[in-house]
Write a protein that binds this DNA or RNA. Structure first.
Lengths: 145, 145
DNA sequence: ATAACTTATTATCAAATGATAACAAAGAAG
DNA sequence: CTTCTTTGTTATCATTTGATAATAAGTTAT
């Protein structure tokens, strides 16, 4: 089979839309009492890329430095993340989830996993393997970091 | 190969994160002069699911009806989308992109496609085919609508 | 018919987020 | 040493977004 890059882009755009929708559906019922949507986004980002400096976080998420600083301060005040001084460069501060931040995100992921398990209930092993391999392929190609 | 559903969930979570990041990187340089982030999100959604009633849009995107109505009004005023009365039920109004809304989104997708093409420059046909099949598998399984 | 429900609108207020300026401390470069 | 750059903070204001109440018109059920 021959695949044009144009057609592949259409597929990818569609995949991204579906992934976004799935994420929305898996997270919409989460508590979220104590934190704002942006703060949750930051926590989710930290749970994937950690530790990270404030500048890097600002750059990766497209949030200005002053606003990044403000939000991280709020999250730190809430005990959900913590700052670590860089040993070599005393200007830099790394941010990571605190123990309770990790716990908090673990809850989120558990909730999402429940919904995921419902969705793949009764799916055969062969198909699961196929899905796993498909994700592997994508992460190795377009979605590599 | 045997894949546990737990492991597959981890992979999926990682895929969603990567897809989100890729989408961010492909869209961050877009003009966005005339519309707000939320309005862009709505336009992107419409370009995938169209036409749709205000209620459905409200439900799908998790935006309250009053706020959905307000944002659609703004987009309509800007000439980017239009409402169509439902023939059967005179309460309902369908929303779809206008011609200039379609044009606007076509520009966005063209920009994204440029970045995508850079990313897959020099990738072999065999690998493109593999990617295409992988996306097909995912859309047929977890990411089906 | 009328009561209950659905769909959409307008108005209003509160909260979250974005943008900018001014500042300070540390490091890098000349 | 002093100049320039990087990293982060605080303060402030504007804009965007969320939440709620009140309303109106159309549909459905009783």
């Amino acid at each position: 089979m021959m695949v044009s890059k144009e057609a592949l882009f259409e597929q990818l755009a569609s995949l991204i839309a579906s992934a976004h929708q799935l994420h929305y559906e898996m997270t919409k019922d989460l508590p979220m009492d104590d934190i704002t949507p942006l703060q949750y986004e930051i926590l989710e980002f930290l749970s994937v890329k950690q530790p990270i400096t404030l500048s890097q976080l600002s750059e990766c998420k497209g949030i200005s430095m002053p606003n990044t600083s403000r939000e991280i301060k709020k999250l730190t005040d809430k005990g959900l993340c913590e700052k670590i001084d860089d040993a070599g460069d005393r200007r830099k501060q790394y941010v990571r989830l605190s123990a309770s931040g990790e716990a908090r995100m673990a809850e989120s992921f558990t909730h999402m996993k429940q919904l995921f398990l419902q969705r793949v209930e009764g799916v055969q092993d062969a198909e699961l393997t196929q899905m796993s391999e498909a994700i592997g392929v994508l992460r190795a190609t377009v979605l590599r970091d």
